[in-house]
C-alpha cells in the first residue's frame, strides 16, 4: 500500500535526518516503525503523509506517486501527528464535526460518522464535554477518532501512547487491533513500547540515525536473530537492542 524508494531528507542543507529508506507497507498490516530518539521516524511519517517534501526519493501510495496527487492522498490517509494539540475550547463532538466538514462530508453523514467514531473510541459519553477537561488518554482517543472520520485506508500514528498510563496504553492497543481486524484499516505506528508493538504488529522496521536496519515480519525477525543473540526466547526488545547496540559498537570502532 505504501512503498518508498530511496527516501532521503536533509534539513537545512546540512543535517541528514533520513538516509535512503526503502519501506514496504502492505494492505492490512499493523506496521511498527521503530527506532531510538532522533532516528528519523517523525521525519519519515511527515514525508509519507505529504506534509514535507523528501530531498530525494519517492513515495508511492497504491502504486501512485504521492507528489503527483496530494489531494487523493489526503482523502485516503488519517494521521495522528507526534505532539499534537487540540482546539481545547471545543467539545469532543464539535471537534470531530469540524474536521468532518473539512473533509467535505454533508451534514447528515457528518453527524452519523462522528457518532460512529466516538463509539469506536469509547467517547460517546464524553462527547459533549470541552476538550480542555479531557484526560490525556481521552484526548489521544479523540485524536484517533479524528483520523478515522473520512474512512481512510491507512492511519499513521506517531507515538499514540506517549505519556499514557498502562490502562490508557491498553485501551489504545485494543482500539487499534479492533480497527484492523473488523474494518481492515492498515496501521502505521511508531512507539517506544516494544512489548506492545510485538503484541499488535505483524511487521516492523527498525531505523537508526536515518538508516533502515531491518524490515521484516516479527516471527521471521525473531528466527533470524535467535542464533546471533545468545539467549532463550528471544523477543523484539532483544532484537532491537542487539541491532541498535551493534551499530553503536561499530561507530565507536570508527572513531
Amino acid at each position: 500500500m505504501i512503498k518508498t524508494i530511496g527516501l532521503r531528507k536533509v534539513y537545512n542543507n546540512d543535517y541528514e535526518a533520513v538516509k535512503h529508506l526503502d519501506l514496504n507497507v502492505g494492505r492490512g498490516d499493523i506496521y511498527g516503525f521503530l527506532g531510538p530518539n532522533g532516528a528519523g521516524k517523525t521525519t519519515t511519517i511527515r514525508m509519507l503523509t505529504g506534509l514535507i517534501e523528501p530531498t530525494e526519493g519517492m513515495v508511492f501510495f497504491n502504486d501512485r506517486e504521492v507528489s503527483k496527487g496530494k489531494q487523493e492522498l489526503k482523502n485516503n490517509i488519517g494521521v495522528l501527528p507526534e505532539s499534537h494539540g487540540y482546539y481545547e475550547w471545543m467539545t469532543g463532538k464539535q471537534y470531530l464535526l469540524f474536521f468532518a466538514s473539512l473533509y467535505g462530508m454533508n451534514k447528515a453523514s457528518r453527524i452519523q460518522r462522528t457518532n460512529d467514531v466516538l463509539e469506536m473510541v469509547d467517547l460517546t459519553e464524553k462527547a459533549n464535554i470541552r476538550i480542555h477537561q479531557y484526560s490525556r488518554g481521552m484526548k489521544q482517543r479523540l485524536g484517533i477518532a479524528r483520523t478515522l472520520l473520512h474512512e481512510p485506508q491507512i492511519i499513521f500514528l506517531d507515538e499514540p501512547t506517549l505519556g499514557l498510563d498502562p490502562q490508557g496504553q491498553k485501551d489504545i492497543e485494543n482500539i487499534l487491533v479492533q480497527l484492523n481486524k473488523e474494518q481492515g484499516v492498515t496501521i502505521f505506528i511508531t512507539s517506544h513500547l516494544l512489548k506492545d508493538i510485538e503484541r499488535i504488529c505483524n511487521r516492523v522496521a527498525i531505523v537508526q540515525r536515518g538508516s533502515l536496519l531491518v524490515e521484516d515480519t516479527i516471527p521471521s525477525l525473531l528466527t533470524t536473530y535467535e542464533a546471533m543473540i545468545e539467549k532463550e526466547n528471544v523477543n523484539l526488545e532483544d532484537v532491537f537492542f542487539f541491532l541498535t547496540d551493534e551499530k553503536r559498537g561499530e561507530s565507536k570502532h570508527d572513531l
Partner: peptide, 13 residues
C-alpha cells in the same frame, strides 16, 4: 505553538 496546524494541513484544505 498549540500543535494543531499539522492536523489542519493534513485535511483536504
Amino acid at each position: 505553538e498549540k500543535g494543531t496546524l499539522e492536523s489542519l494541513l493534513l485535511t483536504p484544505l
